[in-house]
Design a protein around this nucleic acid. Structure first.
Lengths: 216, 216
DNA sequence: AGCAAAAAATCTGTATACATGAAGATTGAC
DNA sequence: GTCAATCTTCATGTATACAGATTTTTTGCT
């Protein structure tokens, strides 16, 4: 066949993981996946290796590939890294964003507002991701932006759970508003601090949820 | 054979790239590499994919693998990302480092001092890397630390050139001293700012060098 | 009936084979 | 002599084959 299998497979698997159709910890059998996608094991294997590198899949020698299941410690550390990177994005975006960047952020924020007004969790979820991504893009630094996006996707499966926390959506939107205010005022330091806290609180709330779940 | 080839190959190739034996832009022919290491193309291919994910190798469809050659823009952006991450490390390390972490940083700094005293570029180079790595480790955040190390290695091939700038070693060491002072005083904000500047200046100096080279 | 040990089945890791697309060489024309 | 087009060669991408290891199942013993 023509040389287009591996990227397609990687994207398909990535979508499955990020969207939650494949859950953290689940085994990824090469033969089954090969049959499912109608290809041989080779491109499946290559796609899994790539996903392993971006953190979505965990491959251990002779034990196969599994959807990454972060332990409590790694989860806290990952959210902290995310918070630091997003804070950097905010600081740089405040200093550099173009009019188009500003418009994109405002548009994403409006999307979030609509979801909140409608009380629609399912709609807030992607709108939130777009809002954050718009800030990454506004830094003008594509390497930094790509890194932020990679982390965002790696943590997506875990955020899913946490959004079920009551009233989280409203609190999240209020935080967005404060971030946006500082950002548009050109106050990078404040925007960075608020965005850092916004991300960190997600990690903390998730940990609380995790602790509660483990009690049961 | 036993399942130990791919990791070994990845490390060998990574060493070759980071140490400069394989230069940015150089082609990585799968068949030649397979012959050189006495294995088939399969594990070579898997190692290359992994290196591609960590940024050391660039694979383009039907065009083969090459040692990553960052363009001017990507280089500036990568150094900026590195600067942001290292600044975060400094801030967190100042707040959290243990006595052992402090000792490790001090030891690495002493190594750097010896290299400077001896005027030994070749020795300063790895000692500098260890000094920075000690700060990453002192954050207590392994995910963050791993990310910082990954970037450090990806940029290593470019730093090599830049260390040839006259008197850069002395300036670098002086900056280390200022960073260490703030760090040991528990002043995370100052340590972060100094480390950020320390990394950024490397990127800028490199760009000047690059511009000078392109003139010739 | 429960547990342990051995055998069978299965899956991973590596090697090899083959086809398609790309790069280079050679030949022909201007 | 130079440029272009075609053909040849070669490398990548995918498929398939095979060996070793791991896991599961089955069987025998307590």
């Amino acid at each position: 066949m023509r040389g287009e299998q591996t990227p397609r497979l990687r994207e398909a698997l990535e979508d499955d993981i990020v969207a939650g159709r494949l859950r953290p910890g689940q085994r990824l059998d090469e033969v089954s996946l090969a049959e499912r996608f109608g290809v041989s094991r080779t491109p499946i294997r290559e796609a899994l290796i790539q996903l392993s590198a971006s953190g979505l899949v965990d491959i251990r020698p002779r034990r196969g590939a599994h959807v990454t299941l972060l332990g409590p410690r790694e989860l806290v550390e990952s959210f902290e890294l995310m918070a630091e990177i997003e804070a950097s994005c905010a600081r740089l975006a405040a200093a550099r964003m173009s009019a188009a960047d500003r418009a994109a952020i405002a548009a994403a924020h409006a999307e979030c507002r609509e979801a909140v007004a409608a009380g629609d969790d399912a709609a807030y979820y992607p709108a939130n991701a777009v809002f954050h991504a718009a800030i990454y893009a506004a830094t003008g630094n594509r390497v930094l932006g790509a890194e932020a996006l990679r982390l965002q996707r790696a943590l997506q499966p875990y955020r899913r759970l946490q959004l079920k926390v009551p009233r989280r959506m409203d609190a999240s939107f209020a935080e967005h508003e404060a971030i946006l205010e500082a950002l548009f005022a050109g106050d990078g330091a404040t925007a960075a601090e608020r965005l850092r806290a916004h991300v960190l609180v997600q990690g903390e709330r998730f940990m609380s949820l995790l602790a509660a779940l483990e009690e049961a």
